[in-house]
Design a protein around this nucleic acid. Structure first.
Lengths: 219, 219
DNA sequence: TTTTATTAAAGAAATAATTCTTTATTGTAT
DNA sequence: ATACAATAAAGAATTATTTCTTTAATAAAA
């Protein structure tokens, strides 16, 4: 039962749509900076090389209404997309595993906002502990439990070696984390109420390599 | 017309399947190291928390045949997966943009093989040029054209700022690159014969944030 | 040897996502 | 004013992907 008092089916927005939203946002920022007040779905579709009706459907998830012959209000659309994704709220996160990938993410979020604020990073390597990457301190992993008791961090970023991924993920949820952004290749075994977002770089590499191979086969 | 002399529909393997393959491979390596000679689809499915028939369908793309009541030969399956993805061939790549993300990828591929060999990285920043990350030299971007003339590199990894992504991508294809692994948020405008693999970190962040928000709505 | 349980493989059904079609709206031009 | 063209929105059809069902094969047990 939700706030409206009705049992309504939770119609989750499809993942492909969600993934396209930051792309629209990036383009719309450009458009806004160019001083364009209104933009139509066909115009967006043409620029982003995708179907205009798909643009309309994707943008509809934000609830913003466009006007025929005018399009959407650029500013309103940007605002709505940011709201919908969650960029206008503060999402605090811990990062575990300050290796290459972890450090990169810490540095990256400085220049490219991802909508989350990494409060601290944790590692077990004494060479890393105490250092600072992208404004984020790397702390001893043992301090995770103590620190999470005081803060209410709901997002854990997992950039550890594959071997310890499951173990660390379990630690994170025992610290109150509700969503895990998993960059390892390990498939995590988590309770159903925990959100796991797998982002395996090697998966993308595999797709690329295979597609290249397909192309070579069909010359 | 292909090698068999028949016009057969190029049935591309679905992207979701391709993305799952490295996961199987990672798990199978573990299993092999544990000395297990045969493994069944239900066993894999149970461990990886996915449908056993999907495992069967996914593995079928490699052409490996399993035996009823026995499963698949672990070694044969690993070999076939590596072959199918393309890990057993050398895929040379150039990386453009040795910033945070680019450097991370260079360092990362040392410890976590992605099936490709980054021959060199390029940047326009004099502070980066001449340095070495993960065994890869960072060269002046102007040298790209000269170097690509001598080497036959088919993969370009794009980790530049969004603003120059399109321009650099065009340079890459004029250098003979056939596939672009695009880490920027820019939507690239490329000829249809060029393979573009978009891997936007912010897309994943967006999905995670939204799902977390969905969960909060339904408490 | 015969039965039984397990499993891969192939096909069917269901679901999810995209693309296509129609309708209604609205600003612009006549 | 009136007609026209462009466009958002809603729904239908198509396509892709996943899940379910059936079948056939095979090793192990009786």
């Amino acid at each position: 039962m939700n706030a409206t008092g009705k049992y309504n089916k939770i119609k989750q927005v499809p993942e492909p749509t969600l993934k396209r939203l930051p792309g629209y946002l990036y383009y719309l920022e450009q458009v806004k900076n160019a001083g364009v007040l209104n933009i139509s779905a066909p115009a967006i579709g043409k620029e982003l090389k995708c179907d205009p009706t798909q643009v309309v459907k994707d943008l509809a998830v934000t609830g913003v209404k466009g006007k025929p012959r005018v399009g959407y209000n650029t500013f309103e659309l940007i605002q709505a997309l940011e709201d919908f994704i969650g960029y206008n709220r503060v999402h605090e996160a811990f990062l575990i595993g300050a290796g290459n990938l972890g450090s990169a993410l810490m540095a990256y979020q400085q220049e490219q906002p991802l909508g989350l604020k990494i409060l601290a990073a944790f590692d077990i390597d004494n060479n890393k502990i105490g250092r600072n990457v992208g404004g984020i301190h790397i702390l001893d992993y043992n301090k995770l439990f103590n620190l999470s008791g005081r803060l209410n961090v709901r997002i854990g970023i997992l950039t550890t070696p594959n071997e310890v991924a499951q173990e660390v993920a379990e630690d994170l949820i025992s610290c109150g984390v509700k969503a895990i952004w998993n960059f390892t290749s390990a498939r995590l075994n988590m309770p159903s109420n925990i959100i796991v977002q797998d982002t395996s770089i090697s998966s993308y590499a595999a797709v690329l390599l295979r597609r290249l191979n397909d192309a070579a086969d069909n010359i």
